[in-house]
Nucleic acid binder design. Structure first.
Length: 581
RNA sequence: GCGCCCGUAGCUCAGUCGGAUAGAGCAUCGGAUUCCUAAUCCGGGGGCCACAGGUUCGAAUCCUGUCGGGCGCACCA
């Protein structure tokens, strides 16, 4: 078996070869369109190991009926020594059963590839920039950021496993009005640290306690220097100072979740380097930006609306509802204007871009997609660009919604969450549903039920495998592949499940859906737990059977490989493969 | 009013570029432990896949419409 090719891909090729043979025989017309032919494991394992719909899909082109065509395909497949049976079922499915040697080879393949089992080269040669988290540097990370962070991080490592080179990037929004507010709030805490009674935190400032130590640190560093200075003297200094501390805090929150970015891009730095100016010039050159007046927003009344001429990007040309301003009337960049330049910058160094955003930014997807599309068109190359929207997490505590607001300082932080239930539970919980569906996250329930969390189910399977290997070692038994032929149907069931892993990684990467790996691991763990429990009913089915050292060694070897696959999968998700619970 | 996402068991959710009899956990009921970790396993009950049309050999999946929920709709970020 060639490496980097999944078992399923290998059989897809065999079936493709059969179809070519049928073309040569004249049973199929030349150049048959095979795009819809699939080769995959049937949902119901009792149907066999592999199923193909080839006969059904191609019957029309062959001017034949599906079952007649299926018979011709089956004739060829029967000649393959690794195919023990090929049967026609239902409307024309062809179900294949594979010989034990195929499964035993797969066990050996897992052992041979080890940590690399499941990696693919499908994405080789494509560098993907994935931007995720990008929380504003105005406070600690809270649960609202958590989902996007975990999904983005797992997607990044999933893409790496699929062979892509990956850049993990964080966009630091350190240029907008909210960082001025941060700076003022920090200045207030600074005065407080120097002994001043600041009373209640005024409306419009960030009241969070997390700014207290920032104020203290500033007091230590600056002393009385900025107490009575006018704001314009200290604002830029406090802005940079506070942002840096906020980013330290955020990085430490991310580290608790096991997340580390490769690149932190600063919006302020981008602007200082005049990237938006360059972007605007380029856009104007290509007639993508013009000076125009926005229409009054429909549906929702804006009291102080008045027509102003602004530089507008022609996003309607690319499917947006409205052209979008890149500068404000005071000449400063809008968020979009800077973001546009930022995406140009990212595209310089990557073949494909992915942004992970919260659903509250859904309204801005079209314009940024339009911007990247315009960029692609203008530069005459395609830049694949995907914005993954991660839906809101409704945070509950004992069934009651928890109102989160950075303004009021009332939020559940990631640090709280990790402290309560641990990184693995947080990550796995976020990854056991598809990101585009809303989810409820009940803090109390997750804490209370953390022992029932599926993550432990998977980890337990891994721990059990480690346990049995320890036990075997004490008994003087070592895993061995010498006598794998002693394994039987019970073991094949397990191997078949494990053999899906590479296929699952490729499919999940293609769909950019890391949650599939979590569900796959659950199924694999279930298969192992079931296998283990066979020994409860029948002592001869235990993994270690004292009287049969060769069989035990083979079963240990198999178990070891299942452990390897679980470990590889958990690695993609960033969850520990613990050795005991 | 417009745009995006979602609607699958009592609850939380899976469901492979459309595939065979729609699955799992929790909850519920009944079983398994002198024996490798019972944080496990085996079994029962529980479904108009929101609704209505359409596309085709075949639809939970694709298209159209309706209803329901969420998010968004300023030069904010």
């Amino acid at each position: 078996m060639s490496e980097n090719k999944t078992l399923y891909a290998a059989y897809a090729e065999k079936i493709d070869a059969v179809l070519s043979a049928l073309e040569a025989e004249g049973a199929l017309p030349p150049d048959t369109n095979r795009a819809n032919v699939s080769v995959e494991p049937p949902r119901d394992p009792s149907h066999g190991d592999l199923a193909t719909n080839a006969a059904m899909v191609l019957a029309k082109q062959a001017k034949s009926n599906p079952r007649a065509l299926a018979e011709k395909i089956v004739e060829h497949l029967d000649r393959d020594p690794t195919v023990t049976s090929a049967e026609i079922a239902g409307p024309g499915f062809i179900n294949l059963r594979l010989s034990p040697s195929v499964w035993l080879d797969e066990v050996a393949a897992i052992a041979a590839t080890g940590d690399d089992y499941g990696k693919s080269t499908a994405g080789a040669g494509t560098r993907v920039n994935i931007e995720y988290v990008s929380a504003n540097p105005t406070g600690p990370m809270h649960m609202g950021h958590c989902r996007g962070a975990v999904v983005g991080d797992a997607l990044a490592s999933l893409l790496e496993h699929a062979g892509h080179e990956v850049i993990r990037e964080y966009y630091v929004n350190d240029a907008g009005g909210q960082v001025d507010t941060l700076a003022r709030s920090a200045h207030l805490r600074y005065r407080e640290a120097l002994g001043e009674d600041i009373g209640d935190i005024p409306e419009g400032m960030y009241p969070g306690e997390y700014l207290v130590p920032v104020g203290k640190a500033a007091a230590d560093e600056f002393g009385q220097r900025f107490v009575n200075e006018p704001e314009h003297e200290w604002l830029p200094i406090f802005r940079a100072y506070a942002v840096e501390r906020m980013m330290d805090m955020i990085k430490s929150d991310l580290a608790q979740l096991g997340i580390k970015h490769d690149v932190f891009s600063s919006e302020a730095a981008l602007q200082a380097a005049q990237k938006p100016e360059a972007a605007e010039a380029w856009m104007r050159e290509h007639d993508l930006v013009y000076d125009g007046v926005l229409e009054q927003p429909k549906g929702k009344m804006v009291d102080d609306w008045e027509p102003v001429e602004l530089p507008l990007f022609r996003s309607t040309k690319f499917g947006d509802d409205q052209d979008r301003p890149i500068r404000k009337s005071d000449g400063k960049w809008t968020y979009f204007g800077a973001d546009l330049a930022y995406h140009m910058q990212k595209a310089e160094n990557a073949d494909a871009l992915i942004d992970i955003w919260g659903a509250d930014h859904a309204g801005t997807v079209k314009r940024i997609k339009a911007a990247v599309a315009a960029l692609s068109e203008g530069q005459g190359k395609t830049i694949p660009f995907d914005v993954k929207l991660v839906q809101m997490v409704q945070l509950l505590r004992g069934g009651e919604p928890v109102k989160m607001s950075k303004r009021s300082g009332n939020f559940v932080t990631i640090a709280d969450m990790v402290y309560e239930v641990g990184k693995d539970v947080v990550r796995f919980t976020m990854l056991t549903r598809k990101p585009e569906a809303q989810m409820d996250f009940d803090f109390a329930k997750v804490v209370e039920a953390s022992k029932d969390n599926p993550v432990f189910y998977v980890q337990y399977a891994h721990a059990r495998i480690c346990s049995i290997l320890r036990k075997a070692k004490d008994a003087g038994l070592a895993p061995s592949s010498d006598q794998l032929s002693l394994l039987g149907e019970d073991e094949f069931t397990l191997v078949k499940q494990a053999a899906q892993f590479p296929r699952e990684v490729e499919a999940a990467a293609r769909a950019r859906e890391p949650h599939r790996i979590a569900f796959y691991l659950y199924d694999l763990a279930a298969a192992f737990h079931a296998y283990w429990n066979l020994g409860n009913d029948d002592a001869e089915k235990r993994i270690i059977v004292a009287q049969e050292p060769d069989l035990s060694a083979a079963r240990l070897f198999l178990s070891q490989q299942i452990g390897q696959v679980i470990r590889n999968g958990l690695g993609i998700l960033g969850v520990e493969a613990v050795e005991e619970l």
